[in-house]
């Protein structure tokens, strides 16, 4: 999972979608990655976060680094 902090607009959608994987910094509201390689059971929620993030901050890549979405 790749996170581009520079684009994060601190909207907190990621944490609402997948609270076990993402958190929001108390200081500036930006994304905090709690789990870089979440278990498969989290995938649907992570995908939801990817779709909801208004600033396209989160992307997914497979082990060889190819971006999936």
């Amino acid at each position: 999972m790749l996170v581009d902090y520079s684009k994060c607009t601190a909207a907190g959608q990621c944490l609402l979608a997948a609270p076990n994987v993402f958190d929001q910094s108390a200081e500036n509201g930006t994304i905090v990655l709690l789990d870089e390689a979440p278990p498969e059971s989290e995938y649907p929620r992570v995908l939801d976060a990817v779709n909801r993030c208004p600033a396209s901050v989160i992307s997914l890549a497979n082990e060889s680094g190819t971006t999936l979405r």
């Binding site: 607009t9 601190a10 907190g12 910094s25 930006t30």
Partner: peptide, 12 residues
Amino acid sequence: RRLAAGDFSVKH
């Protein structure tokens, strides 16, 4: 925006 965003975060 980030200067104010912490105070409007989900947790706050």
